[in-house]
Design a binder for these strands. Structure first.
Lengths: 349, 349
DNA sequence: TGACAGAATTGGAACGTTCCAAATATTTAA
DNA sequence: TTAAATATTTGGAACGTTCCAATTCTGTCA
């Protein structure tokens, strides 16, 4: 009920020492005598003292705020939720706290939350940028000495560190797998061409096609929104082609699910009549029918790596822009037709 | 590159006014002349001024920090991710920022993050408490005048506000539905008996049984971990009963999935051979085979309601403990046997 | 012109910490 | 017993804001 909050001075008075000593105790300094330390700690507990980080940060450099900002573009997508969890794990165990915000792909929102985080004195920022984010948007941050790590989507041109998955290699292995199953006409479906991730995945597709000794056909690349609806749309166009494909690698799992929907609507069964491969390995991929063959990227791992990189830079004081590419791995399930639709028990947790 | 940060004093100097005036501009006071305001704003932009909330909070009450803490027990569960998004929506548009942390059901972790948030001067806290959280844990917070809203799981005994879904009504409607399909022996599977949510759902089950004119049998209530594995275990025990049930309502969707697994392992097909109903309507419920009949609770809605309630209390200055119960609705899909396993197109987004 | 009201501005004094230089206790060595 | 060395403690002076009381400007009115 007592309105006034307990400060370091109250503790000092109660313990019969000076505020400086209390401060020393707070920081775990070895200078202070064991007896006094105990007395002070006891008083803090008794009076219900709460450390005021705001006041402390006022004196110290902002790098000591121990707040790290996390900005994701779509938290409802379990991919990004996992990512946030990965970040939280390492950040928390390093004694930092996480400021998390969701931009829902809005650049304005993103600008707002980043500004707000800055006002709160974050020590570093991890961001999965909203679509069409300007590379220059993070300039002021790094100029102010606040390390920034971009994850999932990279920002070509921005001089910041990034952690992205190996989109090229992933797509290549997907194409390789399909070609080994005997497919000759393999489409690339979905995704918006104006993103760096799209470019990488398409490049991987191309390399895969070439590595398999197939020809690259422009008309087999059909872009669309990177969503379920986009997948439906893309497969529609693919089926309408004169020389229709027999298999497709998709921009991501959402597109792949849409492709399956679209196939069924045309009485084609994904897996047996047409091979489908996704990308990301979202949680639903395994439970879907048919279970989705997809390229597994470990979002939690990306989160952890990103956080580690950021902490390293915070501790180092200065931030070398560094790029980490995390490995991916093809998970073969049913939608590619490699396994007949057997209820795979071993795949569940 | 300039290390020193720009303060309100620098702006004042540059604009030829006093720091007080700059402060007034910052707060949008009507006292300041239009011309000076423009001049000051121009200078702020030019020098790249960043407001230092830490310093401001030092002077003002902690209620003005505009930080609200969000603590969830499992962010990898899309239910809670959605919840966080709901909170973020209203919190953000009210000009607050969200401190989000994940406890992974660890009470120690929860204590840590709450303490840390307090040190950072949060204006309020929204928490989905870890299992077995002590109701007294939030005492200090409310004593310090920091409003707390508990969501999803309520904390009987704690004098804090809460937003929970209507567990009783949801379970009742699930039981009613099964009894209308002709089931006489309906089991209640999964969940830990030491939680308030369990009590509510069980009470709803009981009421439903009685309302349907059936007898309540103790042995049909089988608790287990509220997970997929727990579901497998529970259905095993249920099947082993002398007079085995023909249907089950499950503590949550994870348990329901486990029940389906367990049924299949015994060559029983969920939906046709045994009716299964879940609770929560997680994102996977709709895509599963068979699609899960379940009680839909809107986590994002809970998040929004919780945030609104919290903001109301923050603005009011004083916090009346208040309880909000959000409506739920039975979503009939395939696992209850009401619809034969038709590929339901209309159910997808 | 002087007095007065209202509008606009302004110096401090907080807020709760950390950090520095300096002071005081306690040991050790001679 | 005293000087030197070491261990502990301690007053301020910051940090960047807000807020209060006081001041300086504008007009306006008699």
């Amino acid at each position: 009920m007592t309105k006034a909050r307990v400060t370091v001075i109250d503790i000092a008075k109660a313990a019969g020492v000076s505020k400086s000593t209390v401060s020393l105790v707070l920081q775990g300094s070895s200078l202070v005598n064991e007896g006094t330390r105990a007395k002070v700690n006891a008083m803090m507990r008794e009076l219900g003292y709460v450390y005021n980080r705001g006041a402390a940060n006022l004196r110290q450099a902002s790098a000591k705020s121990r707040i790290i900002g996390v900005v994701v573009n779509d938290l409802t997508n379990s991919f990004f939720a996992e990512l946030a969890v990965g970040v939280d794990m390492v950040v928390q165990s390093a004694g930092f706290v996480q400021f998390l915000s969701n931009t829902s792909e809005s650049i304005d929102r993103q600008r707002e939350v980043v500004a707000s985080m800055r006002e709160h004195g974050i020590s570093g920022l991890i961001v999965s940028p909203a679509r069409a984010t300007d590379a220059a948007d993070f300039k002021p941050l790094v100029a102010a000495g606040i390390p920034v790590v971009v994850v999932v989507r990279n920002l070509p041109g921005a001089k910041v560190s990034s952690v992205v998955s190996d989109n090229r290699a992933g797509m290549m292995s997907a194409v390789k797998h399909l070609s080994e199953l005997g497919h000759k006409r393999i489409a690339f479906l979905g995704g918006f061409p104006d993103t760096a991730v799209f470019d990488d995945r398409l490049a991987g597709y191309r390399s895969g096609i070439e590595a398999a000794g197939l020809d690259y056909h422009q008309e087999l690349v059909i872009s669309s929104a990177p969503s379920r609806a986009g997948g439906v749309e893309a497969i529609g166009k693919a089926i309408a082609l004169a020389d229709r494909p027999t298999a497709a690698v998709c921009f991501n799992d959402a597109v792949a699910f849409g492709v399956c929907d679209g196939l069924r609507a045309r009485r084609l069964e994904p897996g047996s009549d047409f091979a489908v491969v996704g990308f990301d390995d979202v949680i639903e991929a395994q439970a879907a029918v048919p279970a989705l063959t997809t390229v597994s990227v470990d979002p939690q791992g990306i989160g952890r790596r990103g956080a580690q990189l950021l902490l390293k830079q915070i501790n180092a004081g200065k931030a070398e822009a560094e790029t980490v590419i995390t490995a991916v791995r093809l998970v073969v399930r049913e939608s590619c037709g490699a396994r007949k639709s057997i209820k795979s028990k071993q795949d569940s947790e």
